[in-house]
Amino acid sequence: MIDKEITLPPAITGCFEIVSDVFEDETKIFTAQPKLGYEVFPLRIRLKPIKIFDEPVNFKPLLPDLSFITNKKQWSGHIRGQAMRTIPEEDYELIMKAAETPRG
């Protein structure tokens, strides 16, 4: 269990394929930060796991080589509010290679 006060470093935990259209569901499945109140994040999609990484891949070391991140200094703007996105094939290959590289 992770302490609710700890902010984890940005990481990639797996690769998924979207297998449904967007749908709405009001069932609360996430714990929102207190400042968001009773937010349920109702817009959902169904995902098919392609690969769940044994260890998360640290995101920051990949930044210089990820082509979809065009502003390397303010990189979070490229993914904030869009945690799931289609990325170029070369970025996918880079991430998958990083996931296969021993870390620790």
Rank of each mutant, 00 (worst) to 15 (best):
M1Q: 15
K4W: 13
K4V: 13
K4C: 11
E5N: 11
E5T: 15
E5I: 10
E5R: 13
I6Y: 15
L8I: 04
P10Y: 06
T13A: 13
T13C: 09
G14Y: 01
G14A: 01
G14C: 00
C15Q: 09
F16Q: 02
E17R: 14
I18H: 09
S20E: 02
S20R: 05
S20P: 05
S20G: 08
S20D: 08
D21F: 10
D21L: 07
D21G: 14
D21A: 11
E24Y: 11
K28T: 07
I29E: 08
I29V: 11
A32I: 08
Q33L: 10
P34S: 04
L36Y: 14
G37C: 04
Y38N: 14
E39W: 12
E39L: 08
E39C: 14
V40F: 05
F41D: 07
P42A: 08
L43H: 15
R44K: 10
R44V: 00
R44D: 05
I45S: 04
I45V: 09
L47A: 08
K48I: 09
P49K: 08
K51P: 07
K51V: 11
I52A: 13
I52H: 12
I52C: 14
F53I: 05
F53P: 09
D54I: 07
D54W: 05
D54Q: 12
P56Y: 03
P56W: 01
P56E: 02
V57S: 03
V57I: 03
K60F: 05
P61T: 02
P61W: 02
L62E: 00
L63R: 05
L63E: 04
P64F: 01
P64S: 08
D65L: 03
D65C: 09
L66Q: 03
S67R: 06
F68L: 00
F68Q: 00
F68S: 01
T70V: 11
T70H: 06
K73L: 08
K73Y: 09
Q74L: 11
Q74K: 15
W75P: 06
S76I: 06
S76A: 15
G77R: 10
I79R: 00
R80I: 06
Q82P: 04
A83H: 15
M84L: 14
T86Q: 14
I87N: 00
P88Q: 01
P88N: 04
D91A: 04
D91S: 03
D91G: 02
Y92F: 13
Y92Q: 07
E93R: 10
E93A: 13
E93V: 11
I95N: 01
I95A: 05
A98V: 01
A98D: 02
A98I: 06
A99K: 00
A99E: 02
E100A: 14
E100L: 09
T101I: 04
T101M: 07
P102W: 02
R103C: 07
G104A: 07
